[in-house]
């Protein structure tokens, strides 16, 4: 999985290629973190899924994690070019709308503390 980076003035774009699974998800999380690190001016994060291979449950968990962090920081989150396999996974798990519609502010989770 190799995200490639490109960013406009207020948008960070990452193109995801390869599989997003148990072995590669930590890498994606780290790269997204690095791309957003220390930048106050970013209003939008776009993940291009056109060349994304298999996404397993940890991969989906990672997308949810990135979405959650973006929401928290007031960054709009977009998944572009969702292929049929990813769409099927998102629909099966009931996360398609959640991940693809403009976010609403998320109420805090009931348990646990601290930033993730």
């Amino acid at each position: 999985m190799t995200p490639s980076l490109g960013s406009g003035p207020h948008t960070v774009r990452l193109a995801l290629t390869g599989d997003l699974d148990y072995d590669t998800c930590a890498d994606l999380l780290q790269r997204v973190g690095a791309a957003l690190e220390g930048r106050e001016d970013i209003g939008e994060l776009r993940l291009d899924c056109g060349r994304l291979g298999l996404v397993d449950s940890m991969g989906l968990s990672t997308l949810l994690q990135i979405h959650r962090s973006a929401c928290r920081d007031g960054i709009a989150f977009h998944l572009d070019d969702i292929g049929p396999a990813l769409r099927r996974l998102l629909e099966l798990t009931g996360t398609y709308e959640y991940l693809t519609t403009a976010q609403q502010s998320e109420p805090p989770a009931e348990s646990g503390h601290g930033r993730t």
Binding site: S57, P108, E110, S111, H113
Partner: peptide, 14 residues
Amino acid sequence: NNAMRTSHHTRFAT
């Protein structure tokens, strides 16, 4: 879902 939700991670169960 409410009981399982935590800010620590986004691990989920189906």
